[in-house]
Nucleic acid binder design. Structure first.
Length: 225
DNA sequence: TCATTAAATTGTT
DNA sequence: AACAATTTAATGA
């Protein structure tokens, strides 16, 4: 099946549009495949499109010339990012990297702005998303510094399962390897493995082969606090 | 459908 | 970081 036929599945806002708007979006959206580790957007680059994760898994990070990387966010299928740079007409503020083979959807800036002008539901959706992001960012400021690795892993997972930002069909299960979780939480794979089993003992989630299933999302959010 | 093999992921040191 | 064990995916009878 062609990717454009499944926009409905990976863009929660698509269903909010009327026929004309859907037609134009379907026509304007472009899909690009990235292999694991590939740089999707560079910090400093001009923002010309809204970025949607159609398949795979992506991380947002800000790297510095040293090995040090600042805090980052994972974005699973269904997540749309980069509207900040688009709205403010700025250069990209973060790097976007494919954690595994991924398909990225790009909605051109002109189309994005056209939707902003023509669709109230779309505006409402964006407002919702921005508000949710602020909350996430504030939470991150607290836990990022002085929290045990277990708690960092817990928070990273809680973010990935945010049902508002990433509507994964209400499914509390995500295909992600422990190595990938390690990249997001900035923990070694071994430490991630330990953390996951600690969280499993706490009945917060279930670890599966190449996937995790969340049992208690609120418990994850507040783990270690 | 089942058995065999390779590849990916996890568990342990 | 290296290695062993386990799970999944692919292949062919």
């Amino acid at each position: 099946m062609h990717p454009k036929d499944s926009l409905q599945d990976t863009a929660a806002w698509f269903g909010l549009l009327d026929q004309e708007q859907q037609t134009r979006v379907r026509h304007d959206v472009q899909f690009t495949h990235y292999t694991a580790g590939a740089m999707i957007e560079r910090k400093g680059g001009q923002a010309y499109a809204w970025i949607g994760v159609h398949a795979g898994l992506v991380k947002v990070s800000v790297g510095n010339p040293e090995g040090k990387m600042a805090s980052l966010t994972g974005v699973p299928v269904g997540g749309w990012i980069g509207e900040g740079s688009l709205l403010k007409h700025e250069a990209r503020k973060y790097d976007v990297v494919a954690l595994r083979d991924s398909v990225i959807a790009r909605l051109p800036e002109s189309t994005f702005n056209w939707l902003l002008d023509s669709s109230i539901p779309f505006n409402r959706y964006l407002l919702h998303q921005l508000n949710e992001r602020v909350g996430q960012f504030i939470g991150k400021a607290e836990y990022d510094r002085l929290l045990a690795p277990d708690a960092r892993v817990a928070r990273c997972l809680a973010e990935l399962f945010n049902p508002l930002l990433y509507p994964g069909k209400g499914e509390m299960r995500l295909d992600i390897t422990q190595e990938e979780i390690g990249f997001l939480a900035r923990t070694s794979r071994q430490r991630t493995n330990q953390a996951l089993r600690a969280l499993e003992d706490a009945q917060l989630l279930k670890v599966e082969y190449g996937a995790v299933q969340v049992l208690n999302l609120d418990g994850l959010k507040s783990y270690g606090q």
